[in-house]
Nucleic acid binder design. Structure first.
Length: 127
DNA sequence: GGTTTGACCATAA
DNA sequence: CTTATGGCCAAAC
């Protein structure tokens, strides 16, 4: 057969975006997660950048099927918003997070120790 | 099919 | 605290 690595299944592939959305949709309001955490839940911590890519493909907060995705609950590992120059989207993200009860501190950072979603079903209400 | 890019991350200075 | 650098891996050109 041609050289593929059967021991290393591709994390990225058809349905990868849908998987990202499925994970993000499980983040409860009041909690946040990181690109790296989503990638880890998908099986590979190395694809964090692609998680961002999947979110970048969203149209007005919804996937191609029109299903909403709480994209604003995904921030970077430093607790900050990754906007890469798109400050308009960043301000909207802060606004949506505030609606969830997640507020940034004086320097625009969110306390991950407080709000980081652990990847399990959170029965405990957010702090 | 090589080069560039990207809503990342860990590390170093 | 900030900025810079290398690594990561798939999509777009």
């Amino acid at each position: 057969m041609h050289g593929g690595d059967p021991l290393e299944p591709r994390i990225i592939g058809p349905g990868f975006y849908a998987r990202v959305y499925a994970v993000v949709r499980q983040v409860p309001g009041g909690w946040v997660t990181t690109y790296g955490d989503v990638a880890t839940l998908l099986g590979s911590p190395r694809v964090a950048r692609h998680v961002g890519w999947a979110l970048a493909a969203l149209r007005d907060g919804a996937d191609s099927a029109g299903e909403p995705v709480p994209w604003h609950r995904v921030i970077n590992a430093r607790g900050r918003i990754s906007h890469r120059g798109q400050t308009l989207r960043a301000s909207r993200q802060y606004e949506l997070l505030a609606r969830d009860g997640v507020v940034a501190n004086h320097s625009g950072a969110i306390d991950l120790k407080r709000h980081r979603w652990d990847g399990a079903g959170c029965v405990v209400p957010p702090p």
